[in-house]
């Protein structure tokens, strides 16, 4: 029983961390119509920045400054925002599929840097002993994990409320106008390029935040934690949950991560070691299949977009 509860806490923590990244994607895609195919890149920037800022020093590494947890989190968000700003300036004026290709390239490049820039990232060995504010705080690991889960829930709630307010604000309405008809929005005197860039940077900052929270939870980062499949997973979470709906984004994160974990658990129980690779392949195939089926059969996802009215409207 206690084993199941600990697993449930572990599961929820990861699912909700991914939920934060999905909320970021919902602002970019659901809110503004920006196709970010490099989610894992911003997530990895957040995770690595957090690790470099907070992990205890190691003589062979440049970073590892052992700074406080909160400095690590803020630093991770700033780094992801900066990366999004630089790439956004280059690519946000580009529409649709060009942005997808360019952001896809960012993720590939960041993965290469993580693998090859050993002095900063530890290369394939990664960075270990990344601090967590709750590690060793209470008597049992379960109590510590519960404490951290509470922090994640609080951060997710703040992000959710902020995004909901944004969607009802004039700023949010401009984003939606850009998504529906960019020329019309421009005709109304809106600087659409600047709005797109803002949405791109804020969304990517949330992805960086999620990466930092993940690194702090697991306590270890390496390039193998940031494979391209993560981008596909988060896309599947948003599309299956319901693009354009923040509650859909969170629900999708829990549902998709649930399916993923169940298949993974079944595969690791049933399959002998040399066939484990098929478990991973099955997980990825089912994510792909779910994505295609939802697009074909239920394009609005589990809970689709709801009409949003200004909070000043009666």
């Amino acid at each position: 029983m206690i084993g199941f509860v600990s697993y449930l806490v572990f599961f929820l923590t990861v699912a909700l961390i991914l939920g934060i990244a999905t909320l970021g994607l919902n602002l970019q895609w659901g809110g503004t119509g920006l196709f970010n195919a490099g989610i894992v890149g911003f997530y990895a920037i957040g995770a690595y920045t957090f690790a470099i800022l907070t992990a205890p020093p190691r003589p062979e590494l440049l970073g590892n400054f052992e700074l406080p947890w909160i400095v690590g989190v803020v630093g991770a968000m700033a780094a992801a925002a900066l990366a999004a700003l630089i790439t956004g300036l280059a690519t946000v004026r580009l529409r649709g599929d060009y942005l997808a290709v360019a952001t896809f390239g960012i993720a590939v490049t960041i993965q290469l840097v993580a693998t090859n820039f050993e002095a900063l990232t530890g290369g394939t060995m990664g960075i270990a002993s990344i601090p967590n504010p709750f590690r060793g705080l209470f008597a049992t690991p379960l109590a510590n994990n519960l404490g951290y889960l509470a922090v994640i829930v609080a951060i997710l709630a703040v992000a959710y409320v902020a995004l909901e307010r944004i969607a009802r604000s004039p700023w949010g309405r401009v984003l939606k106008a850009i998504r529906e008809d960019e020329v019309a929005a421009e005709t109304l005197g809106k600087n659409t390029r600047s709005f797109r860039l803002q949405a791109f940077v804020i969304g990517s900052t949330l992805m960086g935040l999620a990466g930092a929270l993940y690194a702090s939870f697991i306590g270890f980062v390496s390039p193998f934690d940031f494979l391209p499949i993560l981008t596909f997973q988060i896309w599947a979470m948003l599309i299956i949950g319901g693009s354009g709906n923040n509650r859909g984004a969170i629900l999708g994160a829990i549902v998709v991560w649930g399916i993923w974990s169940v298949i993974g658990a079944v595969a690791s129980k049933m399959l002998p070691v040399q066939l484990q690779i098929y478990g991973g392949a099955a997980q990825a195939m089912i994510i792909g299949l779910a994505l295609v089926l939802v697009l074909l059969l239920r394009p609005r996802g589990l809970i689709g977009e709801q009409p949003v009215t200004s909070r000043h409207a009666v």
Binding site: F35, F232, W235, M285, G288, L291, L295
Partner: peptide
């Protein structure tokens, strides 16, 4: 862009 998505899914499969 919906087609781009679908192509993501097909690529995974």
């Amino acid at each position: 862009l919906t087609l781009v998505f679908a192509s993501f899914g097909i690529a995974l499969i």
